[in-house]
Design a protein around this nucleic acid. Structure first.
Lengths: 179, 179
DNA sequence: GGAAATCTACTCGGATACCGCGTGTCCGAGTTATGGTGG
DNA sequence: CCACCATAACTCGGACACGCGGTATCCGAGTAGATTTCC
């Protein structure tokens, strides 16, 4: 398992579907069009909503939309929302455990940040800076440049069919018994 | 658990003890002076040796020394040695799983690197670049500036006592039976 | 025809299981230096 | 006096247990929208 988890990857891929969509998409739709687990994606999106990245609408034809413009959503926003800005390195404070201190480390040994920790913080900041510069809009644009027109049409059809099938069964009570 | 693990932290702290040492230090000594698990540290140092960061000498008074100058050992070297340059992000290739492809993604969809993956690679590179700039010598120097002279003397005594006790018992067969 | 009931699909939240990996311990094998022992 | 042996401490390597957290599934509760039913 890497530090940037699969959850983040699924969230980002899912969000890209919302960039150009004018209707709300349910987690099930997003999951199934990508061939990933609907149950798992349904656990990720609430975190994005709590972070204000997407807004949810309930009920039939409910789903998620982007809560703000795609160029205002950075990769860092998504990572923090899904993982809760988990640190890259958690210092065990080895400094203060030196045998000579006997459990009572002197102030000079534990003041400030650990020299090793400081390097790691710097490395983490460099990583996060890169994530902060990349937005959903930029990546979406970069990606849509590769897509052939026929694929776009097929996608529209796929979502259209799904949408029709969804609403056509709403509210129709069962005529007869089970099976 | 973070991406830069406790093993890396222990390795770095351990290596710092070797920077200014003219004798080889055993993993047990290094672990006990720092108050960490000797068994665990003994599992980490062989990796550093395999990577050519330290050199081991066997037998009594054996132990580890730095295999090259401390300013030629970067944090990145240590991280790679201990963790085996585990990627920050492992792409699940969601691109090719789109439902429209039906298991056979077209070449345009899976050629090149995934747009999301590319961002992560860039972020990882930024992190590794920082780690590559920091050397053991630099951090050791930064740290030794904080250490009072009395502490240095105490340390020398601690290692001296240990060394004497170690050699004074070598080769002396038990005079009497157990206990 | 309009209001209420019904049904469906959705989001939300929690409970649960699985599994890989990092942490930590333990033990046996092989190696080296030291000091005692026997020729 | 010298060669040999026993001992202690070390590295090396693997086996093993433990626990945490990420992945993944399932289910119940509450909600919104469309249709049918009833007055």
């Amino acid at each position: 398992m890497a530090h940037l988890t699969t959850s983040v990857e699924y969230a980002l891929h899912g969000l890209l579907w919302l960039v150009d969509s004018d209707v709300a998409l349910s987690t099930r739709e997003i999951a199934e069009v990508q061939g990933i687990s609907p149950s798992f994606l349904a656990k990720i999106f609430p975190r994005l909503e709590k972070a204000g990245i997407v807004s949810a609408s309930e009920g039939v034809r409910g789903g998620y939309r982007l809560a703000r413009a795609a160029d205002q959503i950075s990769f860092l926003d998504v990572v923090n929302a899904v993982e809760g800005d988990k640190p890259l390195f958690d210092c065990q404070e080895v400094r203060g455990r030196c045998a000579l201190f006997g459990g009572n480390p002197p102030p000079w040994a534990i003041s400030g940040t650990c020299a090793i920790h400081a390097v790691m913080i710097q490395a983490e900041k460099a990583m996060r800076d890169v994530l902060a510069t990349q937005t959903l809009a930029a990546v979406s644009q970069r990606f849509s440049r590769k897509i052939p027109a026929t694929y776009m049409a097929d996608l529209r059809e796929w979502f259209g069919d799904r949408h029709d099938r969804r609403t056509s069964r709403i509210g129709r009570p069962r005529r007869e018994g089970p099976s």
